[in-house]
Write a protein that binds this DNA or RNA. Structure first.
Length: 272
DNA sequence: AATCGTTCCTGATAGC
DNA sequence: TGCTATCAGGAACGAT
């Protein structure tokens, strides 16, 4: 599933691939992916618009347009946004297609139909984006800021980290990976971590996200980058999807358990 | 304010 | 072999 490193990889790919491209036409095989404006307004406002910049906030991808509006995309579980050549085959789950003059196209595909695409004027004013916690790779994300967001919470720290108002961009893969790197059990109450533990967690979140971006993300399932290719950080996972296998650090057997309805992975040897 | 249950969806897999 | 039931999960939403 696309989390911060995957969305950031797509952003970087598309910032280059779409630069100054003008949308010639739009096709909507599945308008259900749209949020906000209806299909007619969507097509009308985008036809003729030119791409101008690609940003990211948490797991939201924000594609700017010269009209001043932005396309706000959330890939959720299985969304893929890729720039295709004219002779590439269209994905089976194509939901929205933007065609360019040279025959290439930007395709939003989504097997499970959870992903959303919205055209809006001020993305930061959308409630979902406005409520997001700090960006973990910016200077505003400090150990103190993380500690303040976790304070008073009795929920398991894994569940707290999945809450996008605590930190923006973490999902099921990187919460488990960061907690392993920090040596903290996912079940620990979020508000009861020591200062040293919060500092380790802060450092681990940053380091695992940075490493994953360098590896162009984790292709566990359907994730593909902006060019339609896989990432390789899944080969560096220390706990995620490794239940029953040995911890690379201490040799203990990795455990998987459902916590708050989410698959959760940890090493009983390294994490306490 | 925090937290919990429900909902959306479909491919993969387990069980018979 | 082929059918059916179950599972996976991000996050909005309503309820507590």
């Amino acid at each position: 599933m696309p989390e911060l490193p995957e969305v950031e990889t797509v952003r970087r790919d598309l910032a280059v691939a779409l630069r100054k491209r003008r949308i010639e036409s739009v096709e909507l095989p599945f308008p259900g992916s749209l949020r906000g404006a209806g299909r007619n307004g969507f097509v009308r406002q985008l036809t003729g618009a030119r791409f101008a910049g690609a940003r990211r906030r948490g797991k939201f991808l924000i594609l700017g347009l010269d009209s001043g509006q932005s396309l706000v995309v959330h890939l959720k579980m299985t969304g893929v946004l890729q720039h295709q050549k004219a002779d590439d085959s269209l994905p089976k789950a194509a939901r929205i297609i933007f065609y360019f003059r040279d025959g290439t196209r930007l395709v939003f595909s989504d097997q499970r139909k959870f992903g959303t695409v919205r055209l809006c004027g001020r993305p930061e004013q959308l409630p979902d984006i406005g409520a997001l916690g700090p960006e973990p790779l910016t200077r505003s994300f400090t150990p103190l800021a993380l500690g303040a967001r976790l304070a008073g919470r009795r929920a398991p720290v894994k569940a707290a980290l999945l809450d996008q108002t605590v930190v923006a961009g973490l999902g099921n893969i990187y919460t488990s990976e960061a907690l392993h790197r920090a040596g903290i059990l996912p079940q620990r109450p979020a508000g009861k971590l020591s200062i040293a533990e919060v500092e380790r967690l802060h450092r681990s979140i940053r380091s695992v996200l940075e490493a994953a971006i360098k590896a162009r993300g984790s292709s566990v399932n359907t994730y593909r980058d902006g060019r339609g290719e896989r990432g390789w950080f899944q080969t560096a996972h220390r706990v995620y999807d490794r239940q029953g296998r040995k911890c690379k650090r201490c040799g203990c057997v990795i455990v998987r358990e459902t916590l708050r309805g989410r698959g959760t992975y940890w090493c009983p040897g390294c994490q306490r």
